[in-house]
Design a protein around this nucleic acid. Structure first.
Lengths: 118, 118
DNA sequence: TCCGTTGTATTATTTGTAATAATACAATTA
DNA sequence: TAATTGTATTATTACAAATAATACAACGGA
């Protein structure tokens, strides 16, 4: 599994793991129902402590992104539509907040559209 | 000066002070050349340690947002155009990165425009 | 001249959280 | 039976933010 971690980042490693796996799901790189690495394997792969991966997996399970089946392994949930939609909604929200900031500074619709890559 | 700090946030207080003052400048609430509170006053106001405000002021001075005149006080620089332009550029950058994410997930131009508040 | 305020600077300490280390247990599978 | 899985606990380390407690020099007003 291709996960990029910035070990110098202020963002905790366990949160980066959460975001990366969410991203892979959104991009359909991780398919519904598919198995992801065991806690120990991923920890070894990323050169971090198993507890760190465990913490990420706990959060992802609470977010209904993955499901842990004891002794079997950990899997992407079957229905990822909610996860993907939330990802889209969250992203749109960030953009709209930034647009509001720009408008407060004084930019109008045309000003903004001209600067966007669309 | 109206500065909002989230004391529970993961973002350090000194960084929040930097952002807030940058915002007030971008919004023309803080005018070029105008005086801002002394380190001790703002620290008292925000209920934080003077060292924390000092750290924020140091960063703002390096960013050419404010200038400290010993024994006189601290002031917004005379020319804030660069500061404001940088703020706009940074914001646009964030938006464009988010747009790229949405496109990777599979949304096209129309999809995105429909969801934006523009 | 004296006092209060300004920015500046230094050192030590506290605090909170991330991350690691080191295990241990139960259940499943080959 | 041995290896692997998720789960769980406790202690420790590491690091950065924030605080605490001062001290100094310079300016301005009373």
């Amino acid at each position: 599994m291709n996960i990029n971690i910035d070990y110098q980042s202020r963002i905790p490693i366990y949160e980066q793991i959460v975001s990366e796996i969410e991203k892979l799901v959104a991009l359909d790189i991780l398919s519904p129902g598919s198995q992801i690495p065991s806690i120990r394997d991923l920890a070894c792969n990323l050169s971090v402590n198993p507890n760190t991966v465990k913490k990420a997996y706990d959060i992802l399970e609470q977010l209904n992104v993955i499901i842990s089946k004891s002794t079997k392994g950990t899997f992407i949930v079957d229905d990822v539509t909610k996860v993907k939609n939330k990802k889209i909604d969250d992203t749109i929200n960030v953009i709209n907040n930034k647009i509001k900031e720009l408008q407060k500074i004084g930019l109008n619709k045309k000003d903004i559209l001209n600067k966007l890559n669309l």
